[in-house]
């Protein structure tokens, strides 16, 4: 989705936000939706989850066992047939009705924070599915946005949509759900990226954050593809940090290259002066 929509790390979502998540990979979806659901369960919110998965199969919940939450009603898991199908066909009014009554019920139970999520990629496979989905999203938009209790993440497989469809879906969502940083302090923020697989580095890296940086690199080391680091917002990296990048690149050379995207020009110049032969294995990707 395009960048003029507010990008909201999932932990920062607030009631009244109706977020779109056009995911590029399953890992991205599981990472973001998992966090959205986890936060809700651990903060005693009500979570309404439209999915045909079994509770035990819900992605990204890490060490949270959903079963006790199902039993005490904090987690409502609604199968798609019951939630939104009429005669096997996706029915926007039915979904809207289902969610409205679930929300009303949750409010009646005294819940002041209600989280809703569903993956509607399968709707696109039905004839006329996209138009009905869009109609449904518009209804949600009108219903959720003024709400002081409800927040939603609407998931869609980006690869199943055309550019125009993504654009249209983007317009009915006020915000875009993005991954939380895996590390953040006032000087450095590290956020996972999924397409391409890698990390987004924002801030400054020096010896005081080498251990954190190594840990972050390890979190993507096992991936069998290219690993990309987006350095557009990296304002400083020390020589030790550059050496760690080179060591990392050489260490995983057999799996795939380490690509540095959006390297700020002054950093690129400095790397040029230090000499690429001292920084083996690093490849420059997209230019800043």
């Amino acid at each position: 989705m395009d960048s003029w929509f507010a990008r909201r790390p999932v932990r920062d979502m607030r009631p009244g936000e109706h977020a779109g998540l056009a995911y590029a990979t399953r890992e991205e979806r599981d990472h973001i939706v998992g966090a959205f659901v986890r936060y809700g369960l651990s903060a005693a919110h009500k979570v309404i989850y439209v999915s045909d998965a079994q509770a035990g199969e819900l992605p990204g919940l890490d060490d949270i066992d959903p079963l006790p939450y199902l039993e005490n009603g904090r987690l409502r898991l609604l199968g798609s047939a019951r939630a939104c199908l009429t005669g096997g066909v996706f029915d926007p009014d039915r979904l809207y009705g289902t969610l409205s009554s679930e929300i009303t019920r949750a409010q009646a139970e005294g819940h002041r924070d209600i989280r809703v999520t569903l993956d509607s990629s399968w709707v696109l496979e039905q004839p006329g599915g996209f138009d009905r989905l869009l109609a449904c999203e518009r209804m949600f938009g009108e219903a959720f946005t003024p709400s002081t209790t409800v927040m939603a993440v609407c998931q869609i497989d980006a690869a199943a949509c055309s550019r125009e469809q993504l654009q249209a879906l983007g317009e009915v969502h006020k915000v875009v759900a993005v991954p939380d940083p895996q590390f953040e302090d006032p000087v450095l923020r590290i956020t996972p990226t999924f397409q391409p697989c890698g990390l987004l580095l924002d801030g400054e890296i020096d010896a005081s954050r080498h251990a954190i940086f190594t840990e972050a690199l390890w979190s993507v080391a096992q991936d069998e593809r290219e690993v990309h680091l987006d350095l557009a917002q990296l304002r400083f990296i020390d020589l030790g940090g550059l050496r760690m990048l080179a060591e990392f690149a050489v260490g995983r050379a057999e799996r795939g290259p380490l690509v540095l995207d959006h390297v700020p020009s002054q950093l690129r110049n400095v790397m040029e002066i230090v000499g690429w032969h001292l920084l083996p294995g690093l490849r420059l990707g997209e230019v800043a």
């Binding site: 020589l239 030790g240 050496r243 080179a246 050489v250 000499g275 001292l278 920084l279 083996p280």
Partner: peptide, 12 residues
């Protein structure tokens, strides 16, 4: 060259 190693003060 060829292997990443310490190059701090040299780079300075």
């Amino acid at each position: 060259t060829g292997a990443p190693g310490r190059f701090g003060l040299w780079a300075v």
